[in-house]
Amino acid sequence: KELVLALYDYQEKSPREVTMKKGDILTLLNSTNKDWWKVEVADRQGFVPAAYVKKL
């Protein structure tokens, strides 16, 4: 499975999103959308801005 690194803190703004902290390592589930990537963090799945994460 592919992992991404959170480059910035992100606070979810809708139930479809997830909160992450800078430095978090997240499991990447889907990166087909260039703006929003689906990730899993702490047993929750949701979207984060693609610009806020980097593939490892």
Rank of each mutant, 00 (worst) to 15 (best):
V41T: 15
W36R: 03
V48T: 02
E2S: 12
K54Y: 12
L26V: 07
N30R: 07
V18Y: 04
W37G: 00
D24G: 04
V4F: 06
E12T: 08
L56R: 03
T27G: 09
G23M: 03
K21I: 09
R44C: 05
V4S: 02
S31Q: 11
E40C: 11
I25H: 05
V53S: 01
R16C: 14
P49Y: 03
V18S: 02
Y52H: 06
V18H: 03
N30C: 12
A6T: 04
Y52R: 06
R16V: 12
A6S: 05
R44I: 07
K55M: 12
K21H: 10
V53M: 06
P15N: 11
V18E: 01
K1H: 12
D35E: 14
A50I: 04
D9E: 05
K54R: 14
L29N: 03
A6W: 02
E12Y: 05
K21M: 10
V41A: 15
V18F: 12
E12C: 11
D9M: 03
A42N: 14
E40W: 08
L56Q: 06
K54D: 08
Y8R: 15
G23C: 08
L56D: 04
N30P: 03
W36P: 00
V39W: 01
I25Y: 06
I25F: 06
T32R: 10
D9Y: 04
A42W: 11
K22C: 07
T19I: 03
Q11R: 13
Q11E: 13
W37I: 05
L5I: 15
K34H: 12
E17A: 06
K55W: 08
G23H: 05
P49D: 02
A51Q: 12
L26G: 09
E17M: 05
L28M: 03
T19D: 04
D43C: 11
R44Y: 05
V4N: 00
T27Q: 12
K34V: 11
K55H: 09
E40V: 11
K21N: 08
I25W: 05
E2Q: 13
K38Q: 13
V53T: 05
S31M: 09
K22H: 06
V53Q: 00
L7P: 00
L29D: 02
M20E: 01
Y10H: 04
K34M: 12
E17N: 05
Y52Q: 05
T32D: 15
Q45R: 11
A51N: 13
W36G: 01
K13W: 04
K1Q: 12
R16M: 13
D24E: 12
T32C: 12
E40F: 06
N30I: 08
D43K: 09
W36K: 03
E17S: 06
V53W: 00
E12N: 07
L5F: 09
W37A: 04
Q45D: 09
V39R: 00
T19S: 15
D35I: 14
L7M: 10
A50T: 06
N33E: 12
D43N: 14
Y52A: 11
W37E: 01
Y52C: 10
T19L: 03
Q45K: 11
E12P: 14
D35T: 14
L5V: 14
T32P: 04
P15C: 10
K13V: 08
V41L: 15
N33R: 11
Q11M: 13
L26S: 02
F47I: 07
M20L: 09
E12M: 14
K1L: 14
D24A: 08
K38P: 01
L28P: 01
A6F: 02
E2P: 11
K21Y: 11
F47H: 06
Q11P: 07
Y52G: 06
V18I: 14
W36A: 02
L3P: 04
T32W: 09
T27P: 15
G23D: 06
Y8V: 11
K21W: 11
S31I: 06
G46T: 02
L28A: 02
K1G: 11
K13R: 14
A51Y: 09
Q11H: 13
L56A: 05
L28Q: 00
V48H: 01
T27F: 13
V39M: 02
L3C: 11
Q45P: 06
V39C: 05
Y52L: 13
P49Q: 02
P49E: 02
L28T: 00
L3G: 04
N30G: 08
T32Q: 14
P15G: 10
E12H: 09
W36M: 06
K1D: 08
D24C: 06
A51P: 10
A6R: 01
E17K: 05
P49W: 04
L28N: 00
W37C: 04
D35S: 12
V18L: 14
D9G: 06
K34I: 11
K21E: 07
Q45M: 11
Y52V: 06
K38G: 05
L3H: 09
R16E: 12
A50V: 06
L5G: 03
Q45A: 13
K55T: 08
L5C: 09
P49K: 04
Q45T: 15
W37R: 01
P49C: 04
E12F: 06
L29S: 04
D24V: 05
L26H: 04
V18A: 05
K54S: 12
F47T: 03
V41I: 15
S14K: 08
T32G: 11
V41W: 07
V48I: 09
V4R: 01
K22E: 07
L5Q: 11
V53G: 01
L7F: 03
R44T: 07
G46I: 05
Y10A: 00
K22Y: 05
Q45F: 08
L28R: 00
L3A: 07
T19M: 05
W37Q: 01
K1T: 13
K38I: 15
V4I: 08
M20V: 09
I25C: 06
A50D: 02
Y10Q: 00
L5H: 05
K38D: 04
M20K: 01
D35G: 09
E2F: 10
E12D: 05
K34L: 11
K55R: 14
F47R: 03
F47W: 15
L26F: 07
Q11N: 13
A42T: 09
A50E: 04
D9L: 02
T27A: 13
D35Y: 15
N33K: 07
L7Q: 04
Q11W: 13
S31R: 08
K38A: 09
L5D: 01
E40D: 07
T27S: 11
Y10W: 12
Y52E: 02
V41N: 15
S14T: 12
K34Q: 12
L7I: 10
K21C: 11
F47S: 03
A51W: 09
Y10F: 08
E2W: 12
V4K: 00
E40A: 11
E40Y: 06
K13F: 05
A51K: 15
K54F: 12
Q11D: 14
I25S: 03
R44P: 00
A42D: 15
D9W: 04
D24P: 00
L29I: 15
D35Q: 13
S31F: 08
S31Y: 08
K38V: 14
Y10S: 01
K13N: 10
K55G: 05
L7D: 01
I25K: 05
W37V: 07
I25G: 01
I25D: 00
E17I: 04
Y8K: 15
N30K: 07
I25T: 06
N33I: 06
L56E: 04
G46L: 05
V48G: 01
D24W: 12
E2A: 12
P49G: 02
R16G: 14
M20C: 06
R44Q: 08
P15L: 09
Q45G: 07
E2T: 15
Y10T: 00
L26A: 08
T19P: 07
G23V: 02
R44N: 06
T27E: 13
D9R: 03
G46P: 00
Q45C: 11
Q11Y: 15
D43Y: 09
R44H: 07
N30E: 15
E17F: 06
E17L: 06
L3S: 08
V48N: 01
A50Y: 02
L29P: 00
V48L: 03
Q11S: 12
K22Q: 10
K34S: 13
Q11C: 10
